[in-house]
C-alpha cells in the first residue's frame, strides 16, 4: 500500500529523482566546521517562524509598538518564549553566518568553481546584518531609539549625498513613525525576500557543485 502511494506520487512529482539528486549523492568526508552553513540556515528558519508569530501581535506604530511587545511578553501564551528565541536567534545568526564566512575563507573554499556561491554568501552576510539593524529598532524602547538615531546618523556623514541617504533611512529629519514603518517593512518583507532568494541560489550551487573538501597540505 505504502509503496503504491509512493509510486503514485513519484509518477506525478518526481520525488525519487530529487532524492537521488540531492540526498543520495556522494560528498567528500568533512569535519564539523562544515555544519555552519546548515546551522545558519536553521537559524534563519527559526527567525522566520518566530518572526511570523511575533508579527501577529506587533504593531509598527510609535504609540503602540512598545505596549504591543509588553503584551507579547506578558499577555500572549508563550509570547515571551517566542520573543526570547527571536531575540537570541538574531545574535546567534550573526555569529554563525560570520563564522561560516571565516571557515570558507580560511579553507579557500571560495575558489574555483565556487566563486558565485561566495558572492551570494557575502551578500547574505550583509543582509543578515541589515536584519539585525532594522530589527533592533522595532521594540521602540530607549535602547532601540538611540541606537538607531546614532546608526542612521552615520549615513549622514557620507560626503555630498549623506543628508539625502539619512532622510531616506529616517523618512524625514528625525526618527518618527515613518522610520519605524520603513524599518518594519524592510525587516519583514524586503530583506527576507532577498535572503530567501539568495539562499536558494546559494543552496542550488552547493548541491550542484558539491561541498568543498577539506584542503590538504599535499606536497604533490
Amino acid at each position: 500500500m505504502a509503496v503504491k502511494v509512493v509510486n503514485w506520487l513519484d509518477e506525478r512529482l518526481g520525488l525519487l529523482s530529487i532524492y537521488n539528486l540531492v540526498f543520495d549523492r556522494k560528498v567528500p568526508k568533512v569535519n564539523w566546521w562544515f555544519t555552519l552553513g546548515s546551522a545558519s540556515l536553521f537559524l534563519f528558519v527559526v527567525q522566520g517562524i518566530t518572526g511570523v508569530f511575533l508579527s501577529v501581535y506587533y504593531v509598527p506604530d510609535p504609540e503602540k509598538a512598545y505596549s504591543s511587545i509588553q503584551y507579547i511578553m506578558n499577555g500572549v501564551a508563550f509570547g515571551w518564549l517566542i520573543r526570547g528565541i527571536h531575540h537570541w536567534g538574531a545574535t546567534l545568526m550573526v555569529i554563525f553566518v560570520f563564522i561560516h564566512m571565516l571557515r570558507t575563507f580560511f579553507m579557500g573554499a571560495y575558489k574555483y568553481p565556487r566563486e558565485i556561491t561566495w558572492v551570494t554568501g557575502v551578500v547574505l552576510l550583509l543582509a543578515t546584518l541589515g536584519m539585525g539593524f532594522t530589527g533592533y529598532l522595532l521594540p521602540w524602547n530607549q535602547r532601540a531609539y538611540w541606537a538607531t538615531t546614532v546608526g542612521t546618523a552615520i549615513a549622514g556623514t557620507v560626503p555630498v549625498v549623506g543628508d539625502f541617504i539619512l532622510r531616506i533611512l529616517r523618512g524625514g529629519n528625525d526618527l518618527s513613525a515613518v522610520t519605524l514603518a520603513r524599518f518594519f517593512s524592510v525587516h519583514i518583507w524586503f530583506l527576507p525576500v532577498v535572503i530567501v532568494g539568495l539562499i536558494s541560489v546559494h543552496m542550488y550551487l552547493v548541491v550542484r557543485l558539491g561541498i568543498s573538501s577539506e584542503p590538504k597540505d599535499e606536497a604533490e
Binding site: 556522494k26 567528500p28 564539523w32 555544519t35 546551522a39 536553521f42 546567534l92
Partner: peptide, 22 residues
C-alpha cells in the same frame, strides 16, 4: 567524493545534531 560519504544520512545527521543543539 568517491572516498567520501553519502549526503543522506551522514551529512544530514551531523546537521541535525547541530540544529538540535542550537
Amino acid at each position: 567524493k568517491e572516498k567520501g560519504v553519502k549526503f543522506y544520512p551522514d551529512i544530514i545527521y551531523k546537521d541535525l545534531i547541530v540544529a538540535f543543539a542550537l
